[in-house]
Every structure is written in C-alpha cells, then in structure tokens.
Write a protein that binds this DNA or RNA. Structure first.
Length: 808
DNA sequence: CCGGAATGATTTTTT
DNA sequence: ATCATTCCGG
C-alpha cells in the first residue's frame, strides 16, 4: 500500500490492463498478482510473502469475480482470522466496487460460524438465543465443573483443562472420541463431558464449539451441506498457514476437494507463528495435495522493504527446513543497513532506542511510523517507563481489551441475565457484586441445590432457606425487575438502566479509583449506541440471517424442512430476529474491542512481535535479541519450537519499510532479578554485509557489567529450562525457594573468584564454546559453576572436571 | 463479609 | 517486579 515510496513497478504493468475489466481494477498488478486474481473456478494456493500485496490480491479477486459476472455477493465466502482483517477487506472491497458486502459471507471463522448457527440453531441443537463464552468465561465455567466434581484444582488446573477441551474440539473430538490412555486423561474427559452438559444446560457455547458445531451440522446434514456447497462458488481463505485441523475440516465441508468450487487459499508458511495454539502449517501442503492444486502462485515481489532488510530476512529464514520455498525480492534498492546495537542493560537499551526514536521524529518521521517490537509483554515495562519519563507519547498494543475489563464484564453479566436467567456464569459473576450479603456459603448451598435438581442457579433459589435464601430472592427479584422494566426500551436505555439499578454505578462512584471504571461503563453505553446505528458489521450481526431466507436464497434450493429456523415474529420492517440486546452481547463476545483509547494520537507503537503481524512501519526496533528471550527458552528445546521462533524473527524483520534496528543487552531484569544474557543465535544468521554495528562488534563477554556480578548467582529460569530438558540435576538449594535474607549472603559468596573465573565474565569451554559465568559455588573438588552457553543452554559444571578458561 | 497478607505464576494470542 | 488468587483473622 505504500509501494509508491519504493518505486513499485506500476508503470511497467499497464499492458496487463484488461479492457474487459473495470478500469483500474487490474492496473498495477504484477504478473503473479494478476495471475492469482484472475484464476478461474479452480483450487488455488497462493504463497504470499510478507509485503507482497496479499490483501490487495484477495480483495481484487473478489471484485474481479463480480465484475466479470462470474458470481454474486451471495456466492462468495471469504474467511479471515481477525476482525481487523475482515474489516480491512470490507473497506477495500467497497472502495473497488459497489458491492453488497452484507450479502456476502465475509468474516472471521468464528463470525461466520455464529452466522451459520444463528440461522440453523434448531438443527444444530442449540437454543435460539445461545450466547457465546469468551476465553475468560470458559475458564470460569470449567472451574465450576471441576469444583462441582470435587476434583483437586492443583491436579486439574482450570486454565489447562479448558485448554485441553479446546484442543480436543479443535481436533474434532467429542468426549467419546478421546482415547482414554491413562487415568488423568480419563478424568479430563469426564470433566469435558460434564462441561458440555453444563454448557448445554446454560445455553452457551465457547469459541471452539462454534466451529465444531458448525462442522458437525455440515457433516451430518446432507441437505444443509448440499445447499451451502451449491451456494458458495468461490471460497477465499486468508492466513491459511494459521488454520487448525478443525478449521481445515470445516472448510472441506463447505467446499470439498473435487467439488468444482473455486477455493483460494492464501498463506505464507514462513509467517506461521501460531503453532503453539494449534495452527497447522501442514494444512498448506495438505491442501495442495488434496485439492490437486495445479499451480501454486508465489507472490515474492515485496513492495514494503528495502533490499538490506529483505536480505536479512531471507538469510535468516533460510535456516529453517521444511519450507515451501520462497524468496522475497524488491526493486527498491538496498536502502540503509540494518542497525545493530548492544547495550549493557535493558535500561540502557530503552534509553538508546528512545533517543534514536526522538532523532527520527525530529527528522520528520511520524511517531506512529515507529514501532518497538519485543518477544514478550514483560519487556514493554522498561521501555514504557523510559518513554514515559521522556514525555514521548506511546501506545501499547495488547493487554486488557475493552469488553474484558472487569466492570464491563459485570455490566454484561447483568445484561446476559436479562436475556437468559439460566446463564450461571453470569449469575455467579454478579450475584454478590456489588456486595449484597450473599456469601460464599450461600452460593455453595445454592449450587448444591441446583446440582441435585439439574437446574440452573436461577431456578434453584427456592432450595436455599433462611437469610441466604432471602438475599438470593432479593437478587433474583432485582434481575426480574430489570427485565420487566427494560422491555421495549432501546439498547442504550436498557444498558443505562442496568448500570444504575444494579448498583454498579454507585459502587464505582463510591470507590476511590472508580473514576476510570465509571468512564468505561459510559463507554459501554457508547459502544452499544454505535453498534445499533453503525452500518456494516453491527447491523449485519443484528439483521444477520435475513439474507438466508431472502427469496433468492430459498429458491436456491434450501428445502423447506431445513430452512433457517425463524422466530415466531421477525420484525416486519428490519427483519430482525434477534433482539438488539442479544445481538450486542454476541458482538461483545465475538469482538473483544480495541484496548487503547489513545489510538488517534501520534504515538510510538509498542507491541509484541506476534501482534505486529500484518502491520508495517517506516522504522522498526526489534529489541531483546538474546538467547533465552528470543528465541525464548521454552521454545529452544525442540527444532519445531526453534523454527517457529525464527519465523517470528522473520515476521519482525519484514515489518520494516525503510529502517530497521536490532538490539540486545547483556543484563536484563526479569521477574525482579538481573539475568545475564548473550546475544541471540539469530544475530549470527544475519549476513554481516547487511548490518551496521552501532556499538563495537564482538565485544568480549561480560565487558562492562562485572560490577553487577554480585547479582549473578541468579538461576531461576535458566535452571527451569535445564530441568525441563532433563539434562542436568539442579543443585539442591535451587529447587526450594530461597528466603530473602539468604539472598545477600549467597550473592556475596558468588563474588568469589575461582582460578581467574569471575561471575558475570565470559568463559570458554572446549565443547560448548563461549558463555557467561552465572554462578560460582563450593570450593575444592566440589566447586561448581553455572554457565549460560546460549544455544547450548545453561549448564552446571564441576570445575574439577570441566575445562573453563576465562576470556577477555 | 471484608480486607490485608501470604502465595504463586509470569511466551507468544484470536475468536 | 508485579499482578492475580487464595488464605485467614477481625
């Protein structure tokens, strides 16, 4: 999109303009892009490198298909992963053609599943107004199940169990499908089953369930399946490398191999960075094979970055095996070298990048064109405080999303209870918030009563007698009164009413630091207002299934028997079949909303490398290129993990248009402890000729930070990874927490010198190479040293055996 | 029931 | 260091 900055090959491509297409649509596409856009109704795999105009190809293809009369909006399904990507597509598409985006199935996997299930709730075995649990809701629902089953929460950690359940669902497995290989699994499956029953009772579905339910309905109902397969002539999938097993299976239900539909999968195996949550890069090669893709189109022309940046990226990624093979090229010339900076500490790193960023800004670069990337969120703090103290505006991505804030979730819980009083998750969230004298004991009694009768908490308040019962009656009475009082009101009025009568407003007004929370509640009202009036997505969600039974669609062959289930009385004028409130609640679960309010300001952008995917900036700082951090130590043990880390670095590098900085430091505060690091192996994988060192190259290990050595006894994370890899026995003291009082003496002890070795200094080992000495302890034949050897890990060595020589 | 103190866990993240 | 959760005494 900023190709003009780099002299994109626009002029040379006028000859590609086809007189049959609307003027401009195919202008300035390069030959590969053109080939992809104008493919016929056949399966296609597009390998779209970073900055190769992927979104443009996707949207242009949709526009082209319609302009050629090859299909209509109803015949197209376009799937993305994020709401942001979906919105981007809508925006660009409507700029190209006056497309009826509403009639098109364009959205996220989960958004489309929601749409599908809203239309076919009956066939899918769901209640009409089913609500969607977000990640947090899911964990607390699982937690309740574990409690109810009286299982040990230490052995069955709710978060991990919910991860297990989601993982099973994403493999298409119901409880009965899982192999009960051991006792633990047997119990987990029991929890899974109980969780499913609970969701069923409460009329809620989690994210994975949206996908699995849709998949199963398509699989098991031939009429539905045939209808949708006939309807969608063209199916486009973005970020295909990020699809998991279930998503691919889902896709195959809508457009199976050999069915003649135009399935257009776009992806980049080098940018697959979500294997850790179930993404299968292998889906790309599976797709190529199963769909018998005749020609894979590679988009390798990069319109984003200068040559040195791309050379660095290409060289780095070439260290990965199992690639589909692709090399980015640019016509923009080499540009500036990649600048490399080594700092003594994370603090110094932050200070340096701040000054550098300020200099760029003074040279006329907008702050919003400067991005600071890091591997893990914890790294943002020191950078933030440096920027904050210097008074430089910045924006941090990630963190709490709007709809995930506690006060917002509380308000939503009341709203959900109005919509569905049997939603136990919401019931429990607010039954005693604000506090109204309903304690843990009372809630426990209520839960027992509910369990015995198999009813919801709301239905079971009669089972608790005495004072607790009376308070519960009061709560339920209040919710019922809210429901009554808000019928017929607008969404905005409903929410305002709930915030006031629930006592939430008063609670936060009374609280010392409730100001911001009150503002967020006000913001919730605004969000609702915007949702109702907004064209496009919001309205789309409300009026959703209307297009499903527009005359054309039914005539299209959906048998009456399986026609979308209608509510008794859809609104005659708008066709609304969901109440605005229900639709808004769905919207809140499906789209967590942006997190930072200061989005409009010109500010330096701070984010993890993961969240930078898909974005681009004129100047990019990649920080913390240190072994154990990037690559992260938890990913270093196996080659798959390491390759994913490398792809992550590849993604980071390719975010930069003009100027790229890479930095690392010798010491870093982590979890309140200073740790000594050596530079990342990825640094060695960057071609020297693309780099420009801002600090002296090949500085000896440990130079300049020996004065900090007294803290070097640290073991913590390094040890953990060691134990995890099963390589070394940890020293006995380290596995037990060390009392604060002992830390000083232990630290001082490590200050000792041993045969010229000093903590914090570099050492050389004949087998493991260079490392940093972290700890020295014991004496004589028992003397041991802990050394960080970077790629060889952190090791404990007996000095009587190991040959360690000091360097520097 | 509430609030302070102890305890524990901190890769990456969308929906 | 920091944040969230849990525990325990008033």
């Amino acid at each position: 999109m900023n190709s003009q900055d780099f002299g994109a090959p626009g002029a040379s491509q006028d000859d590609l303009f086809s007189p049959r297409s609307p003027r401009g649509l195919l202008d300035n596409l390069n030959p590969e892009q053109y080939a992809a856009v104008t493919l016929g109704q056949e399966p296609a795999l597009i390998l779209a490198g970073a900055g190769s105009g992927k979104t443009r190809v996707l949207t242009t293809r949709i526009a082209w298909l319609m302009s050629q009369g090859l299909t209509t909006p109803a015949g197209v399904m376009a799937v993305t992963f994020t709401n942001k990507a979906a919105k981007e597509m809508v925006t660009r598409l409507s700029a190209m053609l006056p497309v009826n985006v509403r009639g098109m199935w364009l959205g996220t996997f989960h958004g489309l599943c929601n749409r599908f299930l809203r239309a076919h709730w009956k066939l899918a075995g769901l209640p009409q107004g089913f609500q969607i649990l977000d990640a947090g809701d899911t964990v607390s629902a699982v937690k309740r199940v574990i409690k109810a089953m009286k299982l040990d929460e230490e052995r069955f950690v709710p978060k991990q169990v919910s991860w297990f359940i989601a993982g099973a669902k994403e493999d298409g497995m119901r409880p009965r499908d899982i192999d009960l290989r051991d006792e633990q699994t047997r119990k987990l499956v029991e929890i899974y089953q109980a969780y499913e029953d609970q969701c069923e009772r409460e009329g809620v579905v989690d994210f994975a369930e949206l996908m699995l339910r849709s998949y199963e309905l398509m699989r098991d109902n031939a009429a539905v399946r045939e209808h949708y397969q006939r309807r969608f002539q063209y199916v486009l999938v973005d970020e295909f490398q990020d699809t998991n097993k279930l998503q691919y299976a889902w896709l195959k239900m809508f457009a199976p191999p050999g069915n003649g539909q135009g399935v257009f999968a776009v992806g980049d195996d080098d940018q697959s960075i979500y294997a850790f949550r179930g993404a299968r890069v292998g889906n790309m090669s599976d797709f190529e094979r199963e769909y018998r893709v005749r020609k894979v189109v590679k988009l390798e022309q990069n319109y984003r970055s200068f040559g040195n940046i791309l050379d660095a990226a290409n060289a780095l990624i070439s260290n990965n095996s199992h690639r589909l093979g692709k090399n980015l090229r640019t016509e923009a010339g080499p540009g500036e070298p990649v600048r490399v900076h080594e700092a003594n500490s994370d603090f110094a790193e932050a200070q340096w990048l701040l000054e550098e960023a300020q200099a760029l800004h003074r040279q006329g670069l907008a702050r919003s064109e400067i991005a600071v990337l890091y591997r893990s969120n914890a790294q943002s703090r020191v950078i933030e405080s440096a920027l904050f103290n210097a008074g430089i505006p910045y924006r941090v991505y990630g963190g709490l999303r709007f709809f995930e804030r506690a006060e917002v979730k509380h308000a939503l819980a009341y709203l959900r209870l109005i919509e569905n009083p049997n939603d136990d998750t919401s019931f429990l969230r607010v039954v005693n918030f604000p506090a109204r004298g309903i304690g843990a004991r009372t809630v426990e009694l209520l839960q027992d009563g509910a369990r015995q009768s198999g009813r919801s908490l709301y239905q079971s308040i009669g089972s608790v007698s005495g004072r607790g019962g009376a308070s519960l009656g009061g709560f339920v009475g209040m919710v019922d009164a809210m429901r009554e009082a808000t019928t017929g009101l607008t969404l905005r009025e409903i929410i305002e009413h709930v915030i006031e009568t629930s006592g939430l407003a008063d609670f936060y007004r009374a609280e010392k630091e409730g100001e911001e929370r009150l503002e967020n509640l006000g913001e919730l009202v605004n969000a609702a207002e915007a949702f109702v009036t907004q064209e496009g997505f919001g309205k789309d969600a409300i009026a959703l299934p209307v297009d499903e039974h527009s005359p054309g669609q039914i005539a299209d062959g959906l048998p009456a028997a399986i026609a979308p289930a209608n509510p008794a009385t859809p609104d005659a004028e708008t066709g609304e079949i969901m109440s605005p409130l229900a639709a808004f609640l769905t919207h809140a679960s499906l789209e967590a909303g942006d997190n930072q309010a200061q989005a409009g300001q010109d500010a330096v952008q701070l984010m993890t490398v993961h969240s930078a995917k898909g974005l681009e900036f004129d100047a990019v700082f990649i920080t913390g290129l240190e072994e154990g951090l990037f690559p992260h130590e938890n990913s270093m043990s196996d080659s798959d993990g390491l390759e994913e880390e490398r792809r992550l670095m590849y993604v980071a590098i390719t975010r930069a248009r003009q100027r790229l900085y890479i930095s690392f430091c010798q010491t870093r505060m982590l979890h309140g402890q200073t740790r000594y690091n050596i530079k990342s192996r990825f640094m060695e994988e960057l071609p020297e000729e693309t780099l420009k060192w801002l600090t002296p190259r090949n500085q000896g290990f440990g130079s300049g930070f020996a004065r900090d050595y007294q803290q070097a006894w640290q073991r913590g994370s390094g040890l953990k990874s060691m134990v995890g890899a099963g390589r070394v026995e940890p020293p006995s003291f380290a596995s037990a927490p060390v009392p604060q009082s002992m830390k000083q003496s232990a630290a001082q002890k490590t200050g000792d010198e041993h045969g010229g070795l000093r903590v914090g200094k570099g050492v050389f080992h004949t087998k493991f190479g260079e490392g940093v000495l972290l700890t020295l302890e014991g004496s004589g034949p028992d003397a041991r040293a802990q050394v960080n050897f970077g790629r060889h890990g952190v090791k404990w060595l007996a000095l009587s055996v190991a040959k360690l020589t000091p360097i520097d």
